[in-house]
Amino acid sequence: MIPLAIDPARVPIALAGNGPLAVRRLTQLREGGADPVVYSPEPDAEFAALAGERLVRALPFDRDLDAVRVLFVMGLDPAVETTLAKLARSCGVLVNVEDVIPLCDFHSPSVVRRGDLLLTVSTGGRSPTLASLLRQRLETLFPEIWGDRLRQIAGLRDQLRKDGASMAAIAKATKSLVTREGWLP
């Protein structure tokens, strides 16, 4: 596995599915800054409400996928999921079919967000439960205040860069701040 962080402002994302897994994935995508087009022929009420104006009450065709680079699929009939995975690949779109490893080009890690700080855990799809347990541990080790800490570190870095400091000097100043504040045991 090769870990990547995708900027949804540059990489168009879509979701096809229905049900609780689709609600969870759409929520996670939005937390990451994405506003995907959502394809669902017969969405349940919760999913339809969450998708809002981005909902297309149909499955995507190849022409729809021409504008997409990443497709998440879940909560559909297995034969439909298989067909969508093949269609996506034929259009050059990376696809993730929830909990169907052979149909996945990538796996989504468990995520802890603290502002712009993003901590992830992946088992390559082999144990979502272990990934979830590790994510819960990270949530405890890195409470919400880490969002503020990152902003403080970023402010220091920005000022030092503006002053012409070298990358080595910036790294040293960052380490010094983290140590002085006792943020990491």
Results as ranks from 00 to 15, higher is better:
residue 3 P to Y: 09
residue 4 L to Y: 13
residue 5 A to D: 07
residue 7 D to C: 09
residue 9 A to F: 05
residue 15 L to V: 10
residue 16 A to N: 04
residue 20 P to T: 13
residue 20 P to R: 14
residue 21 L to P: 00
residue 24 R to L: 11
residue 25 R to S: 05
residue 26 L to M: 05
residue 29 L to M: 12
residue 30 R to G: 08
residue 32 G to W: 03
residue 32 G to V: 02
residue 34 A to M: 04
residue 35 D to L: 12
residue 35 D to R: 13
residue 37 V to H: 03
residue 39 Y to H: 05
residue 40 S to D: 01
residue 43 P to I: 01
residue 43 P to C: 03
residue 45 A to P: 02
residue 46 E to M: 03
residue 46 E to G: 04
residue 49 A to W: 00
residue 51 A to Q: 01
residue 51 A to E: 02
residue 56 V to F: 02
residue 60 P to K: 01
residue 68 V to T: 14
residue 72 F to H: 14
residue 72 F to R: 01
residue 73 V to S: 06
residue 74 M to I: 00
residue 76 L to A: 09
residue 78 P to Y: 06
residue 80 V to F: 07
residue 83 T to H: 15
residue 83 T to F: 09
residue 84 L to C: 09
residue 87 L to E: 08
residue 87 L to R: 14
residue 89 R to H: 10
residue 90 S to Q: 15
residue 92 G to T: 11
residue 93 V to Q: 12
residue 95 V to A: 11
residue 98 E to H: 15
residue 99 D to S: 12
residue 100 V to Q: 15
residue 101 I to D: 15
residue 102 P to I: 12
residue 102 P to H: 11
residue 104 C to W: 10
residue 106 F to V: 12
residue 107 H to N: 15
residue 107 H to S: 12
residue 108 S to Y: 07
residue 109 P to M: 13
residue 111 V to C: 13
residue 111 V to K: 11
residue 112 V to G: 08
residue 117 L to V: 14
residue 118 L to W: 11
residue 118 L to K: 11
residue 119 L to F: 08
residue 122 S to M: 10
residue 128 P to K: 09
residue 129 T to F: 09
residue 130 L to I: 14
residue 130 L to K: 08
residue 134 L to K: 08
residue 135 R to G: 09
residue 139 E to W: 06
residue 141 L to D: 13
residue 141 L to S: 09
residue 143 P to N: 07
residue 143 P to K: 10
residue 143 P to W: 05
residue 146 W to Q: 02
residue 150 L to K: 05
residue 154 A to M: 09
residue 154 A to Y: 02
residue 155 G to D: 12
residue 156 L to Y: 08
residue 156 L to D: 05
residue 158 D to V: 02
residue 160 L to C: 04
residue 161 R to I: 07
residue 167 M to G: 09
residue 169 A to H: 12
residue 170 I to W: 04
residue 171 A to V: 00
residue 171 A to P: 00
residue 172 K to A: 15
residue 175 K to S: 13
residue 180 R to V: 00
residue 182 G to H: 05
residue 182 G to D: 02
residue 184 L to Y: 06
residue 184 L to V: 15
